[in-house]
Design a protein around this nucleic acid. Structure first.
Length: 803
RNA sequence: GCCGGAAUGGCGGAAUUGGCAGACGCCCGGGACUUAAAAUCCCGUGAGACUCAAAUCUCGUGCCGGUUCAAGCCCGGUUUCCGGCACCA
């Protein structure tokens, strides 16, 4: 008999909601546990089949923790600002807020149908003025502390979306969202000084339990390097400051390169003999998109600044200066000393311009390629550094430079400040008034939230201004300081803003006095387990850690890291192994799956599909196995015999399974936890089971398949004290009972398996060998040969070596 | 180019971290039930050799080599694939 999942699932979802069993209680005396999933962007497509994978995983953790006696916070909300909604609004001439409401409704229905144990009473929505009031408030705090500032700068401009992109949103030189061409454009932008926290964002990684690949991605993104800043005198008078990680190669610096945007170029306009040529190169590189610059990376280009030379401080040799776009103004000092013998890029450039290549670190063949090995090289042609290893030479030259005031040690980061403004409508308005007399004037806290005005058209403008700029009666205001005519900032925040602190809002979501009360923040502390996609490792994760550290500095949060533990799930691919997409026609809709198999099966399959951390292809046939398993569990309710105590026959297997499931959930090995429960059910079919046996299975299966197990719990009369299965206590296993007293041990002869023998647990070596050689097959194998060695690994294996 | 990760049956994947390779599931084959089909239940299922069959043996974790009584796991080399970063001095 098959179970009627449609009726059952709805029934228990209603009961859970009615009983409010998943509500977290602030200040509860139980130990707290905060499990967090990345709140979704409520897109027009509805819930993707990939969403339930991480949601189910942490739902299992949350449900298990509740059963283990924790006060669990497992919240849900909507990261609802964003471009797709705005683009859809433009297309359909509807309000973004309306579209958002509509999409949220659909996502809510879908999430509820999955039976996730979210605390719906704490639902947040980043587009709700009650929420973004505090996003704006945190921004103003940053402004107050000098961490938010406006600056004219070259930004990434998507020619298709007509919007400024953060560096993080430019992927392979094109717009991450639409794939459009990205060019450099000068614009005045709000910037957040995340670089001020670079070192702390790096150090903090050592104090948290993040999976290694997340830490590595973060470290690479922050990109800390240590080296020296060195001053080169020039014949023009000005000093040219460079940054290098290889000061030991200073004797090999045969020319210099500065970025085309370097300010000294303008300063030297009158002295540079070929200024027209230089100017032309500058303009050409300015027009290049990032994509072109990357594409042309192999071919080095540049122009020498004729009439000016730099002087190498170690040997006072005059060397030429070039401009080239392979030197970036945004990193280091925008100028480098070129050591073609020991830097690949400099080597390539030197080959193009026929510049001298001098070997100063021996060990390679600099005729063929630059020798960059720092482990084995020995300094040559370097006067007082000769004979030293690279590390020693670095130390010595750094001291030498410092003594003469020519240079000093310096740490640099690849991380750049966060371009924080967007010229779009559907985002949090930046709560700043621009007054011709008073400058940037922040709104008073009492004027927050600054809401979005309703507008007729959300079309972005070609000038690059936000659609808000057209709403004159919103833009034109009086300056709060001087009372004169002023204008509002019309840029909005990027959608990374609302997600940078949402986990704090969940702690106290209805507070209209503070972003969350201190009691709530202190009670919930850090997020205990945060799971999310790898694609957010360097964006959202870094941004929110930065905001959190800022709030920590203000004394508003008790920990300087928001997330104690971070894990990541693999994607669910299409059945053909490719990424799911409409254009590939391999999209699976969770609503259809639920209709065909029920939610419990979908949840189970998403967990059984493979290693949680790895991508896995969807299979329309493999999911049937999970359905069959649940059907088999269901049938057990009829097969189970009476019994109040766990049967002797199943006792050992039950305890082993409890142990396996208990441990596997903690290490995210959901697939093997389910396999263990399947094996147990197979055993129940072989050996029979009683109701007490089935009761245990029902409890440990509950976090995975919560609906069917509640129904079984009720139908078999396990309900006590009016409690739901979700409120039951997680079973403890008896370690003793997971250990067998007799054990099958394989016997090898010369490393080849010949037999298995049955031995008592922990029996001694002599007995093991005696039993082994008395086995017929083993005896045959060693007959007429000398036993050279006997290896007995207790309870594992016996290996007899013969000659 | 650099930094991660991976490679195991027809398929998704297991393997207590050096100890019976292939758990669990899918697919497939055979049988039972059925007028029949679906569903369900039972049996089989890495490849090969010898067998009527059973038994038995050999080979087998991308490739080459090493360490070890014993290697999917450790070491050296190599190929391929996936992900991230990418002129960061």
């Amino acid at each position: 008999m098959r179970y009627d999942y449609t009726t059952i699932e709805k029934k228990w979802q209603d009961k859970w909601e009615e009983a409010g069993v998943f509500h977290a209680k602030n200040g509860c005396e139980k130990p707290k546990y905060y499990a967090l999933i990345e709140f979704p962007y409520p897109s027009g497509q509805g819930l993707h089949i990939g969403h339930p994978r991480p949601y189910t995983a942490l739902d299992i953790v949350a449900r298990k923790r509740r059963m283990q006696g924790y006060n669990v916070l497992f919240p849900i909300g909507w990261d609802a600002f964003g471009l797709p909604t705005e683009n859809y609004a433009i297309k359909t001439k509807t309000q973004p807020a309306e579209i958002t409401q509509h999409n949220i409704k659909r996502f809510t229905r879908q999430c509820k149908a999955m039976g996730f144990s979210f605390d719906w009473s704490r639902e947040v929505n980043t587009t709700d003025p009650k929420y973004f009031k505090w996003t704006q408030w945190i921004f103003l705090k940053m402004f107050e502390k000098g961490l938010a500032y406006k600056k004219k700068m070259a930004v990434n401009w998507c020619t298709s979306c007509k919007i400024v992109l953060a560096n993080e949103e430019v992927v392979d030189g094109v717009c991450e969202r639409c794939g459009g061409t990205v060019i450099r454009k000068e614009k005045s932008q709000w910037i957040l000084k995340i670089t001020e926290y670079a070192q702390r964002l790096l150090d903090g990684l050592d104090t948290v339990d993040f999976i290694e690949r997340v830490k590595v991605a973060n470290r690479n993104w922050i990109g800390r390097s240590t080296g020296s800043e060195v001053d080169f005198a020039t014949t023009a008078g000005e000093t040219l400051k460079v940054y290098t990680t290889r000061p030991d190669t200073l004797f090999g610096a045969t020319y210099m390169v500065i970025s085309p945007e370097h300010p000294l170029v303008e300063k030297w306009a009158d002295i540079i003999e070929n200024f027209d040529e230089v100017k032309k190169y500058q303009e050409a590189s300015k027009r290049k998109s990032d994509f072109e610059r990357t594409e042309l990376a192999k071919d080095k280009t540049g122009v020498e600044l004729k009439g000016i030379k730099a002087i190498n401080p170690v040997n006072n040799k005059e060397i030429p200066i070039f401009i080239s776009d392979y030197v970036l103004m945004t990193y280091g000092t925008g100028a480098i000393m070129a050591v073609p013998g020991h830097d690949t890029r400099d080597w390539e450039f030197a080959k193009v311009f026929n510049l001298p290549i001098v070997e100063v670190v021996g060990g390679g063949d600099i005729e063929k390629e630059a020798f960059t090995d720092v482990e084995t090289g020995i300094l040559v042609n370097s006067d007082f550094l000769n004979g030293l290893e690279v590390e020693e030479a670095k130390k010595k030259i750094t001291e030498w430079l410092e003594e003469r005031n020519l240079g000093h040690p310096k740490v640099n980061f690849k991380l750049r400040d966060w371009v924080f403004s967007r010229q779009r409508y559907w985002g949090e308005p930046i709560p700043i008034i621009i007054c011709p007399k008073c400058g940037f004037v922040p709104l008073k806290e009492s004027d927050l939230p600054l809401e979005l005005p309703k507008v007729e058209s959300y079309e972005p403008t070609d000038t690059g201004e936000s659609p808000l700029a057209k709403v004159r009666d919103w833009v034109e205001v009086k300056c709060p300081i001087c009372g004169g005519d002023a204008e509002r900032e019309t840029d909005t925040m990027p959608n990374w803003a609302g997600s940078s602190w949402y986990y704090l809002r969940y702690m106290d979501p209805h507070n209209d006095k503070e972003f969350a009360s201190q009691e709530a923040i202190n009670y919930w502390g850090q997020v205990d387990w945060y799971n999310g996609g790898m694609e957010h490792a360097t964006l959202h994760l870094l941004y929110s850690r930065f905001w959190h550290k800022f709030l920590y500095d203000l004394g508003l949060v008790p920990y300087d890291e928001p997330y104690a533990k971070r894990t990541s799930h693999g994607m669910i691919m299409g059945e053909n192994g490719e990424k799911m997409s409409k254009s590939r026609g391999n999209v699976v809709n969770p609503d259809d799956v639920i209709a065909e198999y029920g939610t419990d099966t979908l949840r189970l399959y998403e967990m059984f599909i493979g290693d949680f951390e790895k991508a896995a292809p969807w299979s329309t046939t493999a999911i049937k196995g999970c359905k069959r398993f649940l059907d088999r569990v269901w049938v057990l309710t009829e097969l189970a015999t009476e019994g109040d105590e766990i049967s002797k026959a199943n006792e050992s297997s039950i305890h082993k399974t409890i142990k396996k499931v208990t441990e596997d959930i903690e290490t995210m090995k959901f697939n093997t936890a389910i396999a263990a429960m399947m094996s147990l059910v197979n055993e129940f079919y072989e050996k029979g089971c009683n109701k007490a046996d089935l009761r245990m299975l029902t409890i440990i299966l509950n976090p995975f398949a919560p609906h069917i197990t509640e129904e079984i719990w009720e139908s078999l009369g396990f309900v006590h004290d009016g409690l739901l299965l979700a409120q039951e206590t997680w079973p403890a296993y008896d370690e003793e009972k997971t250990i067998d007293n007799v054990i099958e041990v394989p016997v090898q002869v010369n490393g080849r398996l010949r037999a298995t023998v049955t031995l008592p647990m922990d029996c001694d070596k002599e007995e093991a060998i005696r039993t082994a050689i008395s086995d017929e097959k083993v005896a045959t194998a060693i007959e007429g040969k000398n036993i050279v060695k006997q290896i007995v690994v207790p309870n594992k294996i016996i290996n007899i070596v013969v000659k």
